[in-house]
């Protein structure tokens, strides 16, 4: 575990030095919010829960949950998800 921690810190340092985008170097998800109507999640690992009120998506580290009303999965592919609807909140776990 400690080894992993050291590795991640080193990676971030290198990424900062070379100004490489975080999602490339650190395997972070790229999340784009378009107002409160659309959220675009890149680099995901699948969905855990989908209802009209909540969408939970697995990330490389942890999970993101989108809360809202009338949520629709506009598009779903291997590494990107597009959720549309009336978005009320976004939280990480």
């Amino acid at each position: 575990m400690a080894w992993n921690e050291i590795r991640r810190k080193a990676r971030r340092a290198v990424a900062d030095i070379f100004e490489i985008p975080g999602e490339v170097a650190l395997d972070l998800p790229k999340i784009i919010l378009l107002g409160n109507v659309q959220v675009f999640i890149e680099n995901h690992r699948g969905i855990v829960e989908y209802t009209g009120e909540v969408v939970r998506v697995v990330l490389p580290s942890g999970e993101v949950s989108v809360r809202g009303r009338d949520l629709v999965l506009r598009n779903i592919q291997k590494d990107e998800i597009c959720v549309e609807g009336e978005i009320e909140g976004l939280s990480f776990a």
Partner: peptide, 27 residues
């Protein structure tokens, strides 16, 4: 386990779009 259904399909490269929940166990 509809979420699992979606995950399995997308990981095999089947494209889904306009997914809508229409009932507690129906999409």
């Amino acid at each position: 386990a509809l979420e699992r259904f979606i995950n399995m399909a997308t990981s095999r490269g089947i494209r889904f779009w306009d997914i809508r929940r229409i009932g507690p166990d129906e999409i």
